[in-house]
């Protein structure tokens, strides 16, 4: 099964139409793909040798790259929530209500569980874990620059906003990472199940913010009050989320090659069922709400970088 998947993916790379912006030499890509059926360690070596992704090149990440990324995001969230709950020495608990705390504990504990799971998968694969980063959630990089969120350790509203942003970006990035682990059914399922758990957390944090008066739905909506772009990295987190364009490729059994089909939400599909019907613009806002968009790994690593020094 995995071997057949691998063959299918090799065939995909042979199709020039499948990757019009394929910049890396095919041989390098094939070498990287060859790691899919083996231990993670060779992937580590290749990952270390590979150049940083540049705009327009095909991202060819290994399973190890993916695991390191999702572990990094889980560890970042675990630390943010642990500090908010007063679990980290030197960081007094935020003045959250008891009810809010109870929910955030659930999130923190599940983050910690996923850090443990991803760490286990990385070490089982023969790779070593990276050293624990130093975090500064004010975004001041330990006082070396102006803080983005100076009151994050005292103001629940600021903390909940940052927590929401981290969850929403994680949900987006999980989607793009699944593409790189599809040959591995176990890891695919693990990512899918982490992805939906992250979305549950994101929705809860949005609900908490709404209860405190923020204009925000539990799902990402064009009706949400925009998140202030405290930095260019933050601005990227919601970029493209308001799209109502969805496409797929039905030409090939594996969805590669051939023409993209655009779903006709703005023309023929009978989706406007409200009484009275919504305006054309309003129903397309619902379409945008109904689909969470993927984002490249770099969007999340840039967010992590804001809070790491």
């Amino acid at each position: 099964m995995d071997f057949l998947n691998l063959l299918a993916r090799l065939a995909d790379l042979d199709s020039t139409t499948a990757a019009p912006h394929l910049a890396a030499p095919r041989r390098a890509a094939l070498g990287r793909l060859g790691q899919a059926g083996t231990a993670l360690l060779p992937g580590l070596l290749l990952g270390a040798l590979s150049q940083p992704a540049t705009a327009g090149t095909l991202d060819t990440r290994t399973r190890l790259d993916v695991l390191l990324l999702v572990r990094q995001l889980a560890a970042l969230g675990n630390e943010l929530h642990s500090r908010a709950l007063g679990l980290v020495a030197g960081y007094p608990a935020l003045p959250l209500t008891a009810t809010e705390k109870a929910g955030i504990q659930v999130i923190q504990q599940q983050e910690a569980q996923r850090v443990a799971l991803f760490s286990q998968l990385i070490t089982d694969g023969g790779a070593t874990l990276p050293t624990t980063p130093r975090y500064d959630f004010t975004g001041s990089r330990n006082g070396t620059q102006t803080a983005l969120y100076p009151d994050i350790q005292t103001n629940p509203a600021t903390y909940l906003l940052v927590a929401q942003v981290l969850k929403d970006v994680a949900v987006r990035v999980y989607k793009s990472q699944v593409d790189f682990v599809r040959a591995d059914a176990y890891l695919t399922e693990t990512l899918l199940r982490s992805h939906s758990a992250e979305a549950r957390h994101a929705a809860h944090l949005r609900t908490l913010r709404r209860q405190r008066g923020a204009t925000v739905k539990s799902w990402i909506s064009p009706d949400d009050a925009p998140v202030a772009a405290a930095s260019p990295a933050i601005a990227k987190v919601y970029e493209g989320e308001s799209s109502f364009t969805q496409t797929y490729n039905a030409s090939g059994a594996n969805g590669q090659g051939g023409a993209l089909v655009s779903v006709p939400f703005d023309s023929t599909l009978p989706i406007n069922v409200a009484t009275p019907p919504l305006s054309a613009e309003a129903i397309l806002r619902k379409v945008a709400e109904a689909f969470d968009e993927p984002a490249d790994a770099i969007v999340a690593t840039n967010i992590a970088a804001l809070f790491t020094y």
């Binding site: 992805h195 929705a203 969805q246 109904a290 968009e293």
Partner: peptide, 10 residues
């Protein structure tokens, strides 16, 4: 996947 996360939010 685009739909899954919205369902999880629901």
């Amino acid at each position: 996947l685009k739909i899954t996360s919205v369902k999880a939010r629901h």
